[in-house]
Design a protein around this nucleic acid. Structure first.
Lengths: 181, 181
DNA sequence: GCTAGCATGTAAACGGTTACATGATTAG
DNA sequence: CTAATCATGTAACCGTTTACATGCTAGC
């Protein structure tokens, strides 16, 4: 149980909203990040097959039409449970890695409990707040100003700006979600 | 030729500065991003072995000391050439993916030609400047304000802040490096 | 005496990339 | 008529993860 990486998460996340076939999943995933995350056929179709083998999705051939007839995919109860589990208890790497955390964020609203949502955001916030979130030398964090290499200094400046924007958004959102409603 | 991903690039990048053994490479790579990119032994040692098999690094056992004696690694001429080639002509994915681009930036100063450095930065800038760099719906870019889902809206806000900071730094740095010197 | 850190490695399972293969429909 | 888009898949290769395996040294 619990196979697959980001790709499996995204497939389940999209199918949780409505059934669709593989090719459409592909374009949805691409659109999600400005074609930044392109999915190859050789990754997508085997991933679907694995989800099916594990009973997380079902497939129904749509008749009529074309050469390669559409395989409409529907998430199962088991698939939905697995999606919720993965959103509720993401692995450390899914909190730590920006790209993977964004994949999580994309589907986080599918979690029915606000408390569970807040718990995930808090984990990310804690990670970003510890000063170890970037670039070490001789055992402790390096300040951008003291880095001689211009490219490494740039990385630090960018990382700092990014972190700041994200931390502010996380604090604001956690607060809003925590209000008694 | 031309095997390996980010990990091989980082190993070559570090060894280009000075010889060191595997365990130290491991801690350097971890320190580079605040333990964000952790390298497992099962990835590191095989990667070193591949580089050695390809003649890009050489290994000399350091005598004295311990149970598992240090294998001091030195980059070869061929390895240096391969590093330069990879820094000069990164693959699209290394420009597109933030994590991979940062790995490139870390070692970019090893490129002797400022023109070559600028060419790499320009590729990243062009990528960030095209509006397709984030989040599509119904065929064109989505504005944060019109996204109902609070988590997706957050992603857009964060991505916008990040992109802005990085674009500014890229423009400034390209200009500085382009000054006749 | 035990734990943490130093130091190197192997093997199975997994998942992604790249290239290949097929074929219908639609727009220029 | 031709190219792009729709639509699904397979197979070889590659690199990572995870777990296992070993053993020394230093500090508590």
């Amino acid at each position: 149980m619990s196979r697959g990486g980001d790709l499996a998460l995204m497939i389940l996340g999209f199918l949780n909203r409505e059934p669709m076939h593989g090719y459409e999943l592909k374009s949805r995933i691409a659109a999600l990040s400005g074609h930044l995350r392109q999915v190859s056929d050789g990754a997508l179709y085997p991933a679907i097959a694995r989800l099916e083998a594990d009973g997380l999705v079902e497939r129904h051939e749509e008749q009529g039409a074309a050469a390669a007839p559409r395989q409409v995919l529907t998430i199962t109860g088991k698939g939905r449970a697995e999606l919720m589990r993965r959103l509720r208890e993401p692995k450390d790497a899914e909190i730590t890695d920006q790209t993977r955390f964004f994949a999580l964020l994309t589907f986080l609203s599918a979690l029915p409990s606000r408390e569970d949502q807040v718990r995930v955001l808090r984990r990310r916030l804690e990670f970003l707040e510890q000063p170890s979130s970037f670039f070490y030398e001789d055992g402790r964090p390096v300040r951008a100003e003291e880095v001689a290499d211009p490219f490494r200094r740039g990385m630090l400046l960018i990382a700092r700006a990014t972190g700041k924007a994200e931390i502010e958004w996380l604090r604001r959102t956690i607060e809003e979600l925590s209000l008694p409603q």
